[in-house]
Nucleic acid binder design. Structure first.
Lengths: 261, 261
DNA sequence: GCCCTGCGGG
DNA sequence: CCCGCAGGGC
């Protein structure tokens, strides 16, 4: 089973690229972030025409998450947002079980700048995500937590660590929060498979960052040990980041083999 | 010599279509309206790459006119706006002499709604245009006045005259104003050559008007008798109106033969 | 830079 | 329906 995660930066602005990606990478499941569309206006038909059933949880202008799965795959036990989130909370989490794999699709708050209220909200959101996982799951279940984490785990995941040191996306407090999440029983699958590779998933639209490969790896696939054992490979597909008017993120993909149970 | 007139509805939003049109119709001269760009930001290079020299007279957001002529053709005696227009007047007229033909490129005010102040301004603009022509030209000169006139000359130029009766673009006062312009010594070249054809040049973006061919002919090529004698044909080229994200107008083209003088 | 939301103009 | 613009987010 191939699962992809992609911050599309507006699903309506990215429909053509979405078709291109589904056609070329052919994932069985696609987790999307920053769909930026309320559910009533979600382009369900376009996904259907491409051969995917989709569940979505979005809002106007900001945030919004969705999971598309190839027709024939069941999408079970859908969960929206974190426990305790009010109805008007930013829509940042969508979880579902597909082919026995629990998939938690997250769009972690960006945090704006270190020391701000949004930054505190981001750190708290990480803690609440940890609580959520501990409440509903165990580290020995096949669980994938993927999405835009808005944190580069280590300096290996940053093109120019000096320039980013202490900045939002690279701050020790964010890395520690991610670390606590991992310590529960998750592994950063790409880094596990490719311990030394410089791989990025996001390049700022500004300053010609993509052209210069000034990127960060902030889109992650975290897996429990039973899923890690089934993981064949993890990689970033830059092809859609090369197109005209792309999302600022490239998709992360993970190939998972059959369960031996 | 082939001269085209096209309301592009933002030249920057239409650059790709513009290249397509110049490549397929291959006009020697292209008069554009609603360029919607200040002169400092005019995409002169794109036109140059396509093989055209260009003069322009535009402003931010609204209006704006330009004339492109194939390299090798001279662009002489450029005139901007009507006599008496202040510097801050809407930029709606650009005239130039090319290959001995005086070309007056106009974007007549829309008029918004009958009875409004903009409507009165539109009627006054027509009168001032007439004065301008009478001041600077004679009906026995080779003169072309082309552009978006925002008037459908007769009900033959309207897909559903009943629905448009008395409305702006079809109101008797506008038609009379256009009539006075013609009475000075101009002929509606397309109608002269095709007396009974239903031909439209503009279709509202809304209500699927193009799909239903609910159009109006408001883009005109008016010629003096010496030019009429040289006119081989006049037509509307719908090809660029069929593309994705088109202008709401289609170009009008006129083919003019060599002077016998 | 590129996305969103309104708004005003057509 | 499709432009432009301004303002905010990332």
């Amino acid at each position: 089973m191939r699962i992809a995660s992609w911050n599309v930066n507006s699903i309506r602005a990215r429909l053509e690229h979405l078709r291109t990606f589904l056609g070329s990478a052919s994932p069985d499941v696609l987790c999307m972030q920053e769909t930026k569309v309320e559910d009533e206006k979600f382009p369900e038909e376009a996904l259907g025409d491409a051969g995917y059933r989709v569940v979505y949880f979005g809002q106007k202008t900001y945030n919004g998450v969705a999971i598309a799965a190839r027709y024939g795959l069941g999408i079970e036990d859908v969960k929206k947002n974190l426990d305790g989130d009010e109805d008007d909370a930013p829509r940042r989490l969508l979880a579902a079980t597909i082919e026995g794999v629990r998939i938690v699709n997250v769009y972690v708050p960006n945090g704006q700048a270190v020391g701000t209220k949004p930054f505190a909200y981001k750190l708290a959101w990480f803690e609440r995500l940890g609580l959520d996982l501990a409440t509903h799951h165990k580290p020995d279940e096949p669980l994938l937590v993927c999405g835009d984490f808005n944190v580069a785990p280590t300096n290996l995941d940053v093109h120019e660590p000096k320039r980013w040191e202490g900045q939002v996306l690279c701050h020790p407090d964010e890395r520690a929060a991610l670390g606590r999440l991992l310590s529960w029983g998750l592994v950063d699958a790409l880094r596990e498979r490719h311990p030394d590779e410089k791989v990025y998933s996001w390049w700022d639209y500004r300053m010609g960052a993509y052209r210069k490969n000034h990127g960060l790896r902030i889109d992650l696939a975290l897996v429990t040990s039973p899923l890690l054992a089934r993981t064949k490979d993890v990689w970033v597909d830059r092809s859609v980041r090369e197109l005209e008017r792309p999302s600022d993120h490239a998709p992360v993909l993970i190939d998972i083999g059959e369960s031996q149970a």
